[in-house]
C-alpha cells in the first residue's frame, strides 16, 4: 500500500494546510500555496478537506500506484496520462495497483494537487504533514520527493463513486492575476508616484520565485527617503520592498521576521490565487479596506460550504 515516485518533477512535495503555532521559533506555516485547490482535490476523493496531497510545480511527476485507490487532480492544468490514456483535472479516477500517472506539458497555472483516497502512513512533524522545502522540515524522507521514493499509505476502499467538481467552483487559471490587498504598515513611506505604480501597473513574476516568495519585476518602486527598518514580523501575503525597488510577496515558507518595508498585504481570501502564478505571468494589486477583506473571507468560506456537500 503505497505510491512510488518514478520521476519527481521539479519541486514535488507533500502538503496539507500547514502548521500554526511555531512562528515564534522561526517556523512558518508551509502547506499548500493554493489551499483552495487542495481542498477541492480532497473533496473529489471523499477525504477531509485538510488532508495531505502531492503538490507539484511547473514540472509534474511520474508516479506509480502500488495499491487500489481513488485519485483526483486540481489546480494547474497539465497534459496528463493514466496508463498512457489522457485524463483531466477536476474529477476523480479509480486506479489500481501498478497503474501509472504521468504528467506532461504544463498548459496553465503553476501548481497541481494530486489527492489520493488512501491515508498517508507516516508521522506528522510539528502537527502536520506539510514539507517545508526551504528549511527541510518534512514528514516524508526528503522535503521534495526524490526518484524511487515510496510514499507509504494505509488501505483504501477499492472503488469510490466518481465525483466531478461542480462548475461553480472551477476557477480558470489566469495569465493576469489580480489580488486584493490592504495597505501595508510602511505604505505611507512610498513616493506619490510609487503608490500609483503599486496599484495601477502590473508586475511580472520572476523565475526565481519559490515557496518562500514571489519575486516580482515591474516599474521601480521608491520610498520618499531611505529607511533602515528594525527587523519586524512578516506574515503570509506581506508585500515587501527591498532596496532593488522590486517587490516580493511572502508565501507559505516566507521568513517570520524580515527587514524590508511592508508596502501592502494580500487579503486572506485571495492568498490561494498566488499559488497559480507561474514565472512570467502577471500580477496586479487592487486596494480594498480591511472591512471589505473580512466580508470577502466570509463569502469565500460560505461559498465553498454551499457547493460541496461533505459527509
Amino acid at each position: 500500500m503505497s505510491i512510488k515516485v518514478l520521476k519527481p518533477g521539479l519541486q514535488t512535495s507533500i502538503q496539507d494546510l500547514g502548521r500554526s503555532g511555531f512562528r515564534h521559533l522561526g517556523v512558518s506555516q508551509a502547506g499548500a500555496i493554493d489551499s483552495y485547490h487542495l481542498k477541492l482535490a480532497n473533496w473529489l476523493v471523499s477525504k477531509p478537506l485538510d488532508s495531505a496531497c502531492i503538490e507539484s510545480y511547473l514540472i509534474g511527476p511520474v508516479i506509480e500506484f502500488q495499491s487500489n485507490m481513488t485519485i483526483a487532480i486540481t489546480g494547474a492544468e497539465f497534459e496528463m496520462y493514466l496508463n498512457n490514456t489522457p485524463i483531466s483535472n477536476n474529477r476523480s479516477y479509480n486506479v489500481h495497483s501498478s497503474d501509472r500517472l504521468e504528467f506532461g506539458k504544463l498548459i496553465s497555472g503553476a501548481r497541481a494537487y494530486i489527492a489520493f483516497s488512501a491515508a498517508l502512513n507516516c508521522q506528522t512533524v510539528m502537527t502536520c504533514y506539510s514539507s517545508d522545502t526551504t528549511s527541510g522540515i518534512a514528514a516524508t524522507q526528503t522535503p521534495t520527493l526524490s526518484v524511487g521514493e515510496i510514499i507509504s499509505t494505509l488501505d483504501s476502499i477499492d472503488e469510490l463513486p466518481i465525483r466531478t467538481l461542480p462548475k461553480e467552483l472551477v476557477i480558470p487559471n489566469q495569465k493576469n492575476i489580480i489580488v486584493r490587498v490592504i495597505k501595508g504598515l510602511e505604505y505611507s513611506r512610498l513616493t506619490k508616484k510609487s503608490k500609483q505604480i503599486l496599484f495601477e501597473s502590473t508586475f511580472k513574476v520572476d523565475a526565481n520565485s519559490n515557496r518562500m516568495g514571489l519575486r516580482l519585476n515591474g516599474e521601480h518602486l521608491e520610498l520618499k527617503e531611505q529607511h533602515e527598518m528594525v527587523s519586524s514580523p512578516i506574515v503570509h501575503g506581506t508585500i515587501q520592498l527591498p532596496k532593488s525597488g522590486q517587490p516580493i510577496i511572502a508565501l507559505n515558507e516566507g521568513q517570520t521576521i524580515g527587514g524590508y518595508p511592508r508596502v501592502a498585504q494580500v487579503i486572506s481570501a485571495d492568498l490561494h490565487l498566488l499559488g497559480q502564478a507561474a514565472p512570467n505571468s502577471k500580477i496586479s494589486f487592487y486596494p480594498i479596506t480591511i472591512d471589505k477583506a473580512a466580508t470577502l473571507q466570509k463569502h469565500k468560506t460560505d461559498f465553498l460550504k454551499e457547493h460541496i456537500t461533505y459527509f
Binding site: 500554526s20 511555531f22 514580523p233
Partner: peptide
Amino acid sequence: YTESVAAYQSILLIFDPLNWNY
C-alpha cells in the same frame, strides 16, 4: 487568537480571519 511573534520593538498577534472582529 492563534499565535504571536516577538521582534525587537514589536509584537505580532495572529487571529483566525474568519469572523474576526478586529
